[in-house]
Design a protein around this nucleic acid. Structure first.
Length: 506
RNA sequence: CGGGGUGUAGCGCAGCCCGGUUAGCGCACCUGCUUUGGGAGCAGGGAGUCGGAGGUUCAAAUCCUCUCACCCCGACCA
């Protein structure tokens, strides 16, 4: 077999999806496991994606009236104990700080000293510590709504981790808001969920299903949890963002009270919502292929790799002069609200090796410039969504229009492709045996995840648990778009008036 | 915490069963020359307390005991 026929990533998605995922990250040089168990080092190419996510979302948060602030990473244990369900949900995965200093021990090492009177929890989420501040900030209905966001790192001591999808420490954004009325708080919860869905669609090219979590899947301490769920290429579901209506639960725990319009003291209504570096995992698994990372242009750290080709110093001079001129054409260029960035790759490697390097990194466009192009006053342009050797000569005069048109076409194409894939593997299932077959199929190498089953559920938690025990399949959400419909619960056959999304999940 | 597995150069591995030259291979790295429009070639080079401790032996990467770390599967989870 010639080298040209093989994929850049081994194994392929088909052969071993989990391993493929790891290899894509490695080949694109996005992140690596650190010396600290369960924690990752996010490398520049991966971190730049996070920064883009931050910039875009931050603007959307500001546009919806939110302001950023920062609260401590340490949460006194006593704060944490105030909300019973909350404690229950997070107790098993907390890192706890118990000491304040180190002292030399007899063996020349160090021992813990300065034991704290009250241990601190390293935040797994910040409702309680932010609540303590909010209690002081809110006195009157005139102080409301209070709309705050925090960009932070958090720690959840997971037993098993995977880069970007589940790490012990991860980066996220958590919005926390306080409202005068239940209606307003519920509106806020849905508004921010919609911001996430819009962001996922328009920038990540990721189609998501918006819906409500069942009792067993909701955030500990929330009244209602809403989510966006996306389908990965192995047909598993990935929860990509959540938004919680917290009722008065956390207000009561943190004493967030205000004097209402009737002059009475009242507990406030709160919400919280977040997305994390997990979105990068979603991006990878939704779009990438057997040649590595694929990035929608609107989230890519850089958009065009310029690859000059020359044989000797004389040619190099001519080619580089021309290449730099071409690079300058793209300076300050925007694709809608996204600035276009270029990479000049002058490394002493063959052009094909440089091409493959950028293919694996998922850069949307590659632009080769050699002596032959200069003669024609053109460049060779290759797209990440086409075959590696599929290239077209573009006249310099047209290159800006062509690039912008192509990028925007690619952005839309990735969304459509992901949407078609999801639709293809989303099925209405009304027969229990068929449901079990859908989720049980396997090939020799790995389990096949079925897809999204749109099936009736009676609302009984027991049925949900049985299905989870049997198939490792859970209810991902009760979709907003699900219409009222008479039917029978896929598990017990009892009456149901709605379909929910069942799937295996990350 | 249960069940399985692996520790040998930066990464991936062979050698171990059956003890015996100077511990080897691929990739990566460094130097030089030739190359460069589909993953370059040749020559030379640097890099290792064989996870750790103890034991058996004339002799241990190899055999024995203990220990540590990590990975995979399960319970938990964004």
């Amino acid at each position: 077999m010639s080298k040209n026929n093989k994929t850049a990533i081994t194994p392929t998605r088909e052969e071993n999806y989990a391993e493929w995922y790891q290899q894509v990250i490695k080949a694109a040089d996005m992140a690596e496991n650190s010396e600290v168990r369960g924690c990752m080092v996010i490398k520049p190419w991966g971190y730049a994606i996070w920064e883009n996510i931050q910039h875009i979302l931050d603007r959307m948060f500001r546009e919806t009236g939110h302001r950023n602030a920062y609260f401590p990473i340490f949460i006194p244990k006593s704060f944490f104990e105030k909300e019973a369900e909350h404690v229950e949900g997070f107790a098993k995965e907390c890192a706890i700080v118990t000491h304040s200093k180190l002292e030399a021990d007899e063996k020349g090492g160090l021992k813990l000293a300065g034991e704290l009177t009250e241990p601190y929890i390293v935040r797994p989420t910040s409702e309680t510590i932010i609540g303590a501040s909010f209690a002081k900030w809110v006195n009157s209905y005139r102080d409301l709504p209070l709309l705050i966001n925090q960009w932070a790192n958090i720690v959840r001591w997971e037993m098993r981790t995977r880069l970007f999808l589940r790490t012990t420490e991860f980066l996220w954004q958590e919005g926390h808001t306080v409202h005068e009325t239940e209606i307003e708080a519920r509106e806020e919860t849905l508004k921010m969920l919609n911001v996430y869905a819009t962001f996922a669609r328009d920038y990540l090219a990721l189609p998501v299903i918006q819906g409500e979590k069942t009792e067993s899947e909701k955030f500990p301490g929330a009244v209602t949890t809403y989510c966006i769920e996306a389908m990965m290429q192995d047909r598993k579901a990935l929860q990509s963002g959540t938004s919680h209506f917290l009722g008065k639960n956390f207000a009561k725990a943190s004493e967030i009270k205000f004097q209402n319009r009737n002059g009475e003291m009242e507990y406030a209504w709160t919400t919280s919502w977040g997305v994390s570096t997990r979105l990068i995992g979603a991006l990878i698994m939704a779009h990438s292929d057997d040649n590595g990372l694929v990035l929608p242009p609107k989230i890519a750290p850089s958009h065009i790799a310029i690859i000059p080709i020359y044989k000797n110093d004389e040619e190099k001079q001519i080619v580089m002069d021309f290449a730099i001129k071409v690079q300058n054409i793209f300076k300050g260029l925007y694709l809608d609200d996204i600035q276009i960035f270029t990479e000049m790759d002058t490394r002493d490697m063959t052009s094909s090796e440089r091409n493959w390097y950028w293919i694996k990194k998922g850069i949307p466009l590659r632009l080769e410039i050699g002596p032959r192009d200069i003669v024609n006053d053109s460049v060779m342009l290759a797209r990440r969504d086409k075959e590696p050797k599929d290239k077209h000569s573009i006249k310099i005069d047209n290159v800006v229009d062509y690039v912008l048109k192509t990028l925007s076409e690619m952005q839309e194409g990735y969304y459509q492709r992901a949407l078609n894939f999801r639709d293809k593997w989303t099925v209405d299932i009304d027969d229990k045996e068929e449901f079990y077959r859908f989720f049980n199929s396997k090939n020799e190498e790995q389990e096949i995840s079925g897809g999204f089953a749109n099936s009736h559920w009676c609302g009984n938690q027991t049925c949900e648990e049985k299905i989870k025990d049997d198939l490792k399949v859970t209810i991902r959400c009760i979709p907003f778009e699900a219409k009222e419909e008479e039917g029978k619960c896929i598990y017990c056959g009892e009456k149901s008036n709605r379909r929910v999304i069942f799937a295996k999940a990350y």
